[in-house]
Design a protein around this nucleic acid. Structure first.
Length: 265
DNA sequence: ATGGTGGAAGGTCCA
């Protein structure tokens, strides 16, 4: 049975409730993980999602910033989240699929700090926070076991083909050496498979295009910031991966496009 | 080298 998971930085779930509904109607993933919901959990507009079959929602939120949510048409059991960097931020939410062929698979939805502009932890506390967050992701990954899918806006584009210009972004936060080193170390620590690159090792892949371009599509200065990782138990079941680039062109879009992965479980 | 846009809060910070 196929299990399709989607991850999307929505940049306000309340402002873009209609876009979320459109995605659910047109693409119908089994599970949709959202980041930057920017809403307290109680104010997430759940009714319309439930009416579309996504009555299971596990979320964490705060007012105005951060926020992560898992919408599902499969039953979920919420799992404890980790308070990365001990700040109480709503950057991780987790659940276990509770029924069906994928029963027992854990879903981890993460929003890694963007890290600010200056890629120097000595003068930029946001970049320091980002580096420590990714280090902690490695520690946590090394200690966990069992079938799992980790998705989210990880805010790092690790490969040369994950950015529009490797050379021009080497000193731009999201593609710097200290970030990428820690990112790949964290992935290795959990034996996570990068599903998009398992299925397409070469060629440009982006999931984010800045709002600050006069024509995002024409300039196509994208980065792959949104990821789907799978644990070794299920990485081999990955069958498909894609970016719904069209959603970046929807009315009043998020600056991120949804990323999908399908597993035969 | 710079500034460009967008969301939310609320007279600014974050991305």
């Amino acid at each position: 049975m196929p299990l399709t998971v989607c991850t999307w930085n929505i940049n306000s779930v309340r402002l873009r409730e209609g876009l979320v509904q459109r995605l659910l109607r047109e693409e119908a993933p089994d599970i949709l993980c959202l980041q930057e919901t920017k809403s307290p959990v109680a104010k997430i507009p759940t009714e319309g999602f439930a009416a579309l079959g996504y009555g299971t929602i596990v979320a964490r939120g705060e007012k105005g910033y951060n926020g992560v949510a898992i919408l599902s048409r499969l039953p979920l059991a919420e799992l404890p989240h980790r308070d990365f960097c001990g700040r109480g931020d709503a950057r991780h939410v987790a659940a276990r699929i509770a029924q069906g062929p994928a029963e027992g698979v854990e879903i981890h939805n993460l929003y890694i700090p963007a890290g600010g502009d200056e890629p120097d932890p000595a003068i930029n506390p946001k970049f320091d926070h980002k580096l420590r967050f990714v280090e902690e992701l490695g520690d946590w990954s090394a200690g966990r076991r069992g079938p799992a899918i980790l998705v989210g806006d990880l805010n790092i584009a690790p490969g040369e083909d994950d950015v529009w210009s490797h050379r021009q972004l080497l000193n731009v936060v999201s593609h710097t050496e200290p970030e990428i080193t820690r990112f790949e170390a964290a992935r290795a620590a959990g034996n996570w498979a990068d599903i998009a690159r398992i299925l397409q090792p070469q060629g440009k892949l982006y999931s984010w295009w800045s709002y600050r371009a006069s024509d995002w599509e024409a300039s196509d200065r994208g980065r792959r910031l949104d990821h789907v990782w799978a644990s070794p138990e299920i990485a081999g079941a990955a069958r498909a991966s894609r970016v719904l680039k069209a959603a970046r062109g929807w009315e009043k879009p998020s600056d991120h496009a949804p990323v999908f992965a399908t597993f035969d479980l």
